[in-house]
């Protein structure tokens, strides 16, 4: 097998590069478009190399916004999206780690029933329960608030399931050793379960941050004020139906900006993720 490896390396690389080109080219084009002025783009005179207006376009997008459609600078949208995504990610981790801890380590009546009820909600996407959820949020006066954006999306069957599976791999002897060492259930959670769960938390954080960041339908429903709109909604609003009116260079700049935080989260968390994986190795 060894002598065949040289050729064997070339083919997978080729396939990989083709794949990367297919995925990355539209993103690159979006970036290029964000560095020209609107007329050049509309006339189809945009080249494959970045244009001269990088700083100007991004400055306008972040601090001023489009002149007609969104009326808010992208900076505000990004802040809104960030608060929402963070709130959802952190909230989900907090809620699901606690409920998984209860399900795995406490024996109470209808424990498995509780678990299955949580599990069943996995099969129910947000869209199905969106009207009742809207009604509740509206009645609570949470429209156009961060709480309204975050709270309904926090409950997570995926997270609970993930933590439950992880907790089941913690040996029983560790619980017993803690008991003998005089650690109650809260101490055991704080001193042993939390530090051991860091890897799982990092993984869940990455997934849920991106999930929160990419939310479209829910923020579209419950935010009406311009100051509360998220970046995903913002991009949609920027692309007006009449093509000529769309400020493509700003829409593209916004799209590029919208990509950055999820990418940053993946890169930053990946380090912790890998570190965590190495550290918990037995």
């Amino acid at each position: 097998m060894v002598e065949r490896r040289r050729l064997g390396n070339i083919v997978p690389h080729l396939v990989l590069w083709i794949g990367i080109a297919i995925v990355a080219f539209p993103v690159y084009l979006a970036f290029v478009a964000s560095t020209y002025d609107a007329t050049t783009i509309a006339n189809g005179q945009m080249g494959l190399a970045p244009g001269p207006l990088f700083l100007e376009n991004y400055y306008r997008a972040i601090f001023v916004g489009t002149s007609r459609s969104t009326r808010e600078p992208v900076g505000t949208m990004m802040l809104n999206s960030f608060v929402m995504a963070m709130g959802i990610a952190v909230g989900k981790i907090a809620i699901s780690i606690l409920s998984a801890y209860a399900i795995v380590y406490f024996k109470f009546p209808f424990r498995m029933t509780a678990f299955w009820i949580i599990f069943i909600t996995l099969m129910l996407p947000v869209e199905v329960r969106i009207y009742p959820t809207y009604k509740i949020v509206a009645d609570l006066g949470l429209l156009d608030t961060y709480a309204g954006l975050i709270v309904p999306l926090i409950a997570s069957a995926t997270g609970t399931l993930l933590f439950r599976q992880f907790f089941m791999t913690i040996p029983d002897e560790l619980v017993e050793a803690s008991k003998i060492d005089g650690a109650g259930f809260f101490r055991f959670f704080k001193d042993t379960v939390l530090p051991l769960s860091i890897t799982t938390m990092a993984a869940l954080f990455v997934i849920q941050f991106i999930y929160g960041w990419n939310q479209y339908l829910w923020p579209l429903l419950i935010t009406t004020k311009d100051s509360m709109q998220t970046i995903v909604i913002g991009i949609k609003k920027m692309i007006v139906t009449q093509d000529a009116l769309t400020e493509w260079q700003l829409a593209m700049a916004t799209a590029v900006l919208a990509m950055l935080p999820p990418v940053a989260v993946v890169i930053l968390m990946q380090r912790l993720f890998v570190k965590g994986l190495v550290e918990t190795e037995k």
Binding site: E173, E176, D191
Partner: peptide
């Protein structure tokens, strides 16, 4: 009392 377990049950972190 103090107990020594078969798999040691040391806190890995």
């Amino acid at each position: 009392i103090a107990m020594v377990f078969q798999n040691y049950a040391l806190y890995p972190h």
